[in-house]
Write a protein that binds this DNA or RNA. Structure first.
Lengths: 330, 330
DNA sequence: CTGTTAGCGCCTTCAC
DNA sequence: GTGAAGGCGCTAACAG
């Protein structure tokens, strides 16, 4: 690998001159610049990113940490983050937190190889997050609440969303409503459930624990939970899946058992992933402003980076998207 | 930020001693190690990744460059890469090539911030890729062929796959078959089309250009192309979409026009994305070994990294997955 | 406009 | 087992 030293030598100038020339400084004459550029090209010179970052103590990149790079849910979020980041001249790298504290994600988080971080990964512990929080290192969390003055918090209103979804079901005449859980350590899930049970209560309905089953936000989990629900031999009138992926798995399970949606049972999801409108029947669900959440997060990071003050917490609201998986019961 | 210097000072030892202690060298006594560790904890010390990498000239991370982080197609590929990378103690970062030569991806590629790169991004030009190719820098490309001794090439057999898909349609009695294109610069698409037209020819069918429409591998593109197809006022008996995403968009377009799949027209896709089995009707398609492709790619990178010789090119085969979008024509 | 110089934070011989 | 010193490749004062 050719270094800047080699380039300087070949061009017959000092190292600093070469550096200036390569970095478009104005302090260099056209002719020297040409010389340097030619030398660089000849040697196939590429600057060493580390050395440069080390010196400048900034990286111009922000990291997005997701528990799973491959989930469909994240698509729009990533897009939101990416759009804003690139228009600001920043780079975005996405890393997975699979592997927990050993993961790449955590390494980036701890070794500050980036200028700012957005976290949406339930398997990164609060402690770990807090360890990295400090002044001058913008940290935005999307899936939890953290009491720390250096952590900013963007959340969608899960309680409201859970409430609205449940209320929709009730308005359509359903009284016996099941709830399929997300993973036990998911803050989002807790909140949605809170909205769910509140809506039940406000409408004079009682929550029955036999109708709260465990899923894990995956299609598989929704499928399994639904099979169990069916096995209980007594079906509710409607089921509220804590996210769309599970609802999709659930619908498949129902279909396999000859149970028709929405004729036999109504189904509602949460998230409004792209897929929701393509399945049969199209899924009624609570839309999360995923793109907006991503865009807002980076925005906040940039504000923090430029020393501006921002609020500690932001809340985005959800919206009911009616499709065909919930029927009006007479 | 505390540096190793601070730690050493607090612990009352030399910098090198602190470094040894922190890096689990055996050359340090238990007691000094404890002292250093305590000091590190007290100062909340975290090593600076850049400095460390700069010195060691290796990063223990590999990059996966994708044209779009958010596409559903990539899920399994990422998983394959990730599994192998993490079990080998390597980190994986995924970066998007959106933004072309200005993108993060290219930066990582050129500035060698990683030990190896896997590319699956049609918007990264061949030239750019070749510029980065050199001895000792493992580079695996998944979506094109490149003549360079330092580039390794993993591909799925697109020609065969295109051939098999078309032949399946023909065997089911279809003669008038349309082909919906991927983006013009996609090598994969070219190959699939080649298989398509070969199968046509081998079966005594003639290719008609009115039945080759332009899509771009997106759902939207498939939808638009299909609308155009419908507007032509004369429908083929079957359509081969160059990938599943487009097929899904296409099916929606057909449905909107009251055309039934597979009763009125048969549809086949390519890829076998997860979604394929959930849509209505479940999509018949050519399965690509995505996980395997990812896993193999990293494998090759590790072999290269350890100085082993590997072949220049690997080919994985596809497999027909029959579902319900193709009907037998009598 | 160009060259000299001093580090960025860390690792690693080499003497002691 | 420990410490002093040099340098990875680059940038940015500071002089000239």
């Amino acid at each position: 690998m050719a270094t800047i030293k080699d380039v300087a030598k070949l061009a017959g100038v000092a190292i600093s001159t070469a550096s200036y020339a390569l970095n478009n400084s104005t302090k260099v004459s056209q002719s020297t610049r040409k010389k340097v550029e030619n030398a660089a090209k000849e040697l196939n010179y590429q600057k060493n990113g580390f050395a440069s970052d080390l010196k400048r103590t900034k990286t111009n990149t922000i990291a997005l940490i997701l528990s799973d790079l491959s989930g469909p849910y994240y698509s729009e979020l990533i897009k939101g983050v990416q759009d804003v980041a690139t228009t600001n001249g920043y780079d975005l790298i996405a890393c997975s937190s699979i592997g927990g504290s050993q993961s790449t994600a955590v390494k980036f988080l701890k070794e500050k190889r980036v200028d700012g971080v957005i976290i949406l990964a339930h398997n990164i512990s609060d402690e770990l997050t807090l360890e990295s929080a400090r002044e001058g290192f913008p940290l935005v969390v999307l899936d939890r609440k953290l009491k720390n003055e250096f952590v900013v918090h963007v959340e969608v209103d899960n309680v409201d969303g859970g409430y609205a979804a449940t209320e929709h079901l009730i308005k359509k005449g359903h009284k016996q409503i099941a709830y399929i859980n997300g993973p036990y350590n998911s803050h989002d899930n807790e909140l949605r459930f809170e909205g769910f049970s509140r809506a039940l209560k406000d409408n004079g309905l009682t929550y029955q624990s036999k109708w709260r089953l465990s899923g894990d936000f995956t299609r598989e989990g929704g499928y399994r939970a639904t099979k169990m629900l069916i096995a209980q031999n007594e079906l509710p009138e409607a089921v509220f899946y804590a996210n769309d992926e599970m609802a999709i798995g659930g619908i498949q399970a129902f279909r396999e058992n000859g149970i028709k949606i929405p004729e036999d049972i109504s189904v509602i999801g949460f998230d409004d992933i792209q897929l929701a409108e393509y399945i049969t029947p199209p899924l009624t669900t609570m839309k999360q402003p995923k793109y907006e959440a991503g865009a807002l997060s980076v925005h906040l990071i940039f504000q923090l980076l430029s020393g501006e003050k921002v609020n500690h917490s932001y809340k985005l609201s959800t919206e009911l998207v009616e499709r065909d998986s919930v029927k009006l019961k007479e």
